[in-house]
């Protein structure tokens, strides 16, 4: 039976340390993944044909290959070509590349949903193509894409645990190492699960707030 002293003084501090490392993976990956998703999604809709095809190919590769395999490739295979990343760098890079690919799909759908009439109106007012995309289309598309993109952030919180396979000891890694030392599988895995649940709940709440903050009367309602 796990005693309270061990739980509060050994397990919780170790899991907290893992939590901070998990957050250090999730924060940059989600922010850069979202920005990358907007960029790649925009290229897939509005860029010239070669760039559009390149962006499509990127998404096909990073959505089509398991993330775990991508991480192995970045961390274990690339050094054979002289490209070396630390476990943290490889994990963040892998998460960003994967998240960008998925986010771009949400953004692409949102961009395509903007009424053509508004695009025509912007052109008729003398907007350049870039200004039309930046000031008319993207602000609306991002609002439409928010629920899907938020869902991707929730996924990212969970798949950040894959960094453990690259020897980066984040929350799941800490839990695994603690169980190896103490054999308190139920308590430690349950507690680590609660940490993830707390993170996803908090992220859902924050994303919900963000959606409400960005809400515009009547926007997104089918007319």
């Amino acid at each position: 039976m796990l005693d309270a002293d061990m739980f509060w003084n050994r397990i919780i501090p170790a899991l907290n340390e893992g939590l901070l490392l998990s957050l250090s993976l999730i924060a940059p990956s989600s922010v850069i993944g979202f920005v990358g998703g907007v960029l790649v999604g925009t290229l897939r809709v509005y860029a010239c044909s070669p760039l559009r095809r390149l962006a499509d190919a990127y998404v096909a590769v990073f959505r089509g290959i398991p993330l775990l395999l991508q991480l192995y490739f970045l961390y274990y295979a690339l050094p054979k070509w002289g490209i070396r990343f630390s476990a943290y760098q490889a994990a963040v890079l892998g998460f960003i590349l994967c998240s960008t690919a998925y986010q771009s799909e949400h953004v692409r759908g949102a961009l395509l949903s903007i009424r053509q009439g508004q695009i025509k109106a912007a052109c008729a007012l003398g907007f350049s193509a870039v200004d039309m995309i930046l000031y008319i289309v993207i602000p609306q598309a991002v609002r439409r894409a928010l629920p899907g993109c938020g869902n991707e952030v929730i996924y990212l919180i969970k798949y950040s645990s894959l960094a453990y396979v690259l020897t980066f000891i984040e929350l799941t890694g800490q839990a695994k190492e603690l169980t190896a030392r103490t054999f308190h599988y139920i308590e430690i895995y349950f507690t680590a699960g609660m940490y993830y649940l707390a993170m996803t709940t908090l992220a859902s709440w924050a994303l919900d707030r963000l959606e409400k903050k960005c809400r515009i009367p009547g926007f997104g309602v089918q007319r």
Partner: peptide
């Protein structure tokens, strides 16, 4: 082209206001 569109305004049947 952009200068032409600045000088020639257009009103559409469906209004086409910017929703956001």
């Amino acid at each position: 082209l952009y200068a032409l569109r600045e000088r020639v305004g257009m009103i559409f049947q469906d209004f086409n206001l910017f929703d956001h």
